[in-house]
Design a binder for these strands. Structure first.
Lengths: 144, 144
DNA sequence: CTCCTTTTCTTGAATGAGTCAAGAAAAGGA
DNA sequence: TCCTTTTCTTGACTCATTCAAGAAAAGGAG
């Protein structure tokens, strides 16, 4: 009996990724969905909202596992601790505020796996192009 | 009397940036030029090659100062510690090996401040687009 | 050239995100 | 329901980076 029809079925996501369904993992997955771009610390707090006694380690482990399984994506702009998001597989990018660290999503404008074409690859086999736009968020740029 | 005509004049660079010319700073600047994309740790070692008794703190301070002055650029791909390079002001990007962490430069292919155009800026005032290409370096991709 | 003020460097301790490790508990197939 | 494997808890630990206080060096003034 699904109690929240609108919410994605996290258990099913875990199962289809061949992962065991555990309370911490479901809670972490839910937290990442609820708080896009949240830091590990913020996620630990969020998870403890529903599961008061999870260890930080369980959250770290879950995040690693979920990231490895591709259910969650880890981003880590310079000067920031690790952040996670649930929007995956659509090759989108991020804008990061230099002042407050706020993060927002940006779709890939150029259309076709755009930035994936490096001018010289130096023999590297490239599989992903990560783009981070740096600047100031509305609040910080207004606060002169 | 310049003893190394080919080498950039680091003292002059410091002076024109209105920074005091100190041995640690000159040595750090030289080390960054000699070892592009080196980690802080590697730079500390390099600097101690010429200045055996510098404290790690002096190197950290110098790197901060030089970065703030724009004489050096800091890059920090996910999962890596801080790295520094002396190639600045030409808006180039990087390829990073997922396996060994090797870094190489990539010029901006699209020509005109390319990636600087985000599709939706969410009200952010964007001043820089940072691109990191992820993949495997020649050695790591060959070592099957 | 010498003095004085300011900036920078040394030394040593502290912070904090993230990891490691051993045993206890939970998941899920037999 | 039992058993094996995976995952979680607990608690210690690592390592890049930062903080802080005093000592030393830089460089302009005289």
């Amino acid at each position: 009996m699904p109690d929240s029809p609108a919410a994605p079925d996290f258990s099913a996501q875990l199962r289809s990724a061949a992962l065991r369904v555990t309370q911490p993992r479901v809670a972490v997955l839910a937290a990442v969905h609820e708080h896009p771009h949240a830091s590990t610390d913020a996620l630990i707090d969020a998870v403890r909202g529903t599961l008061p006694d999870v260890s930080h380690q369980a959250v770290y482990d879950s995040l690693h596992t979920l990231t490895a399984a591709g259910l969650v994506r880890k981003i880590q702009p310079s000067g920031s601790t690790a952040r996670y998001e649930s929007r995956i597989g659509d090759n989108h990018h991020h804008v990061v505020c230099r002042s407050c660290g706020a993060v927002a999503d940006v779709d890939c404008s150029t259309g076709h796996a755009p930035c994936l074409t490096a001018s010289q690859s130096h023999g590297f086999v490239i599989d992903e192009a990560e783009v981070i736009y740096w600047g100031l968020c509305p609040q910080c740029s207004t606060a002169v």
